[in-house]
Amino acid sequence: MSAENSITVDVVSDVVCPWCFIGQKRLDKAIASAGDIDVHVRWRPFQLDPTIPAGGMDRRQYMLGKFGSEERIREIHARIEPLGEAEEIHFAFGAIKVAPNTLDAHRVIRWAGAAGEDVQNRLVRRLFRLNFEEGVNLGDHAVLAEAAGEAGMDASVVETLLPTDADVEAVRNEIATASRMGITGVPCFLIEGKYAVMGAQEADTLADAIRQIAQAKARGELETATG
Rank of each mutant, 00 (worst) to 15 (best):
P163G: 01
L222T: 09
S2W: 05
A34D: 06
I76H: 11
A34M: 01
A32L: 02
D165Y: 04
E71C: 09
F189P: 10
S2L: 07
T102H: 12
V108L: 03
W43N: 01
T177A: 14
Q120K: 02
I37C: 04
G55H: 05
I213A: 05
S179C: 05
R44Q: 11
I76N: 12
A166E: 14
L83T: 14
A115M: 10
E146S: 09
S156P: 02
A200K: 02
G94P: 11
R72Q: 13
E134C: 10
E4Q: 10
A105G: 11
I73M: 03
R219D: 14
R60E: 15
A155F: 05
T205G: 06
P187D: 05
C17Q: 11
D38G: 00
A95S: 15
L222A: 04
G55C: 04
D204E: 14
E75Y: 08
G199K: 04
K25T: 01
T51F: 03
T8K: 09
G113H: 01
A166V: 09
M198G: 03
Q47E: 13
S13G: 07
I89V: 14
A34N: 06
V158W: 08
A3Y: 08
E70H: 12
G116K: 00
P163K: 04
G55A: 06
A99V: 10
V119A: 05
N173E: 15
I76G: 03
R180G: 08
T177G: 09
L123G: 00
Q212K: 13
I37K: 01
G199S: 09
P45I: 04
S6Q: 11
E146K: 13
H90T: 14
Q120W: 02
I76Y: 08
A3S: 15
V39N: 07
E87N: 11
F67C: 10
V158Y: 03
G116E: 00
P187G: 04
T102V: 14
S13A: 12
I52M: 07
G35Q: 06
D204W: 03
R126C: 08
E146A: 14
E75P: 01
D58V: 05
A30G: 02
A170E: 14
L222R: 08
E117Y: 00
G113Y: 00
D14F: 00
Q201W: 01
E75F: 04
I96V: 15
Q201M: 00
A32T: 03
L130Q: 12
D10R: 02
E159K: 15
M153G: 04
G182L: 10
F91Y: 12
N137L: 11
D118W: 00
N131Y: 15
S156L: 08
I89W: 08
H106C: 05
A166M: 07
R26V: 01
D154M: 05
L64A: 09
V186P: 12
Q24A: 14
A209P: 07
V157W: 11
E133R: 06
E134N: 15
E169I: 07
D104C: 03
